[in-house]
């Protein structure tokens, strides 16, 4: 038995109820509360407004707010499901839920497809993959000749684009990742299993809030 019964659970003013968020996700109520500690820390890093801006998201990822990054931008846009330009706590918990070790594999595959479908056409196109490869090269300061990039793209599309129409559809992607399971590694965050241990202060804050209210 824990110290707190569900009716005494903390409410997050202006944010979705942790019990409701837990019911929609693989997280327990305590884990949602622990995620709130992480959310508070990220959402107050530039402006303490209870929302995560793109700048705050990049700061949390890179510890450097100046670092623009195509992939971080894309992840931010997928977290920001309501397209408000900011991530609220509900968005944050529901998006991280996909990365939970217990989340359905299909949800991970679906999220990864959206991630690489930069312009949301329902297909991963060759020019999108080339754009991502060039962004990666800029990020890592690795240099590859254009011919080498084209060889990598040729190889990838021969393997993934089964009907050879120059773009990868959802079914081709599902098939491709099932043959290349290592591509799904980025879709699971083992940290999420231990979130209450990483942010134990959620218990302390719960107690303080109960006394304060």
């Amino acid at each position: 038995m824990g110290c707190f019964s569900s009716k005494h659970r903390r409410q997050f003013p202006g944010h979705e109820d942790p019990v409701s968020l837990a019911s929609q996700t693989a997280f327990t109520v305590s884990e949602v509360e622990a995620l709130f500690e992480l959310f508070k820390s990220i959402s107050s890093s530039v402006i303490d407004d209870g929302l995560i801006s793109k700048e705050e998201f990049q700061l949390a990822l890179f510890k450097n707010r100046k670092k623009e990054n195509l992939f971080a931008n894309r992840i931010f846009d997928l977290f920001d499901v309501k397209h408000k330009g900011v991530i609220d706590f509900g968005d944050f918990v529901r998006a991280l839920n996909v990365f939970h070790p217990n989340a359905p594999h299909e949800d991970k595959v679906d999220f990864s497809f959206k991630l690489y479908d930069l312009d949301s056409t329902g297909f991963i196109e060759r020019q999108e993959v080339k754009q991502m490869l060039i962004a990666l090269l800029c990020e890592s300061e690795m240099k590859l000749a254009d011919e080498t990039i084209e060889i990598i793209l040729d190889k990838t599309f021969v393997d993934a684009d089964v009907n050879q129409d120059g773009k990868i559809d959802k079914e081709e992607w599902q098939n491709f990742v099932s043959r290349n399971p290592s591509l799904m590694k980025i879709m699971t965050l083992p940290y999420l299993r231990d979130i209450t241990t990483t942010f134990p202060s959620f218990v302390f804050n719960s107690e303080v809030d109960e006394i304060a209210t």
Partner: peptide, 24 residues
């Protein structure tokens, strides 16, 4: 890198490494 498929390379981007969100 020529031996790797494009997505294997892309998935090494730091921007896709969300574990850094949890590093205090």
């Amino acid at each position: 890198p020529v031996l790797m498929n494009a997505f294997e390379l892309i998935s090494t981007s730091q921007g896709l490494n969300l574990s850094s969100l949890f590093e205090k």
